[in-house]
């Protein structure tokens, strides 16, 4: 211990580097309490949250509402289009049915029995088989019918 005192007070040995430094006294004002940094950060964040929470809520609510309304609107649109599709399908079905009815009516009117009746009324006579002229064709020749069709032996 005496050695240490000696070395401390001796001008020859500068142990200042190795000596514990005395605590520095900060200049602080008595009415201000300095918060620790972590606590200060936390308070800063809380303050920020306190300000943005209502806006977020409103924005979220708005988003949800928009999504909800959009969903409804989309469904309405789909339903409307589906309804149009169904109406058109029904109309097509009815028109198909009418077309078949008309085709059937046409077939009925041109059936052999009716054709013969009408022909007789018009004074027409069925040609006898001896009035039928047969045309023979071979692979070199062809026959041309009045409507321009070419008939050749296959």
């Amino acid at each position: 211990m005496d050695n240490l005192k000696y070395y401390n007070e001796s001008l020859a040995y500068d142990f200042e580097m190795f000596m514990p430094k005395p605590k520095q006294k900060t200049n602080s004002r008595d009415n201000i309490v300095v918060m620790p940094a972590s606590k200060a950060n936390k308070r800063r964040q809380s303050a920020a949250k306190a300000v943005s929470a209502p806006i977020t809520l409103v924005l979220c609510a708005f988003l949800v509402l928009a999504g909800f309304c959009g969903n409804i609107a989309l469904r309405l649109e789909i339903n409307e289009v589906n309804s149009e599709i169904n109406d058109m399908k029904a109309a097509i079905s009815e028109l198909d049915s009418e077309m078949i009815s008309l085709e059937v009516e046409m077939e009925r009117r041109i059936c052999f029995a009716n054709l013969e009746l009408e022909a007789v009324k018009l004074g027409m006579k069925k040609p006898e088989k001896e009035n039928v002229t047969y045309i023979r064709v071979n692979d070199k020749n062809a026959a041309k019918i009045a409507d321009g069709t070419i008939v050749s032996e296959e």
Binding site: S93, E105, E107, R108, C111, F112, A113
Partner: peptide, 13 residues
């Protein structure tokens, strides 16, 4: 109500 109907265009043929 929609249903189907069978047609025979040539009547008794």
């Amino acid at each position: 109500d929609e249903t189907t109907k069978r047609y025979y265009p040539n009547d008794s043929l």
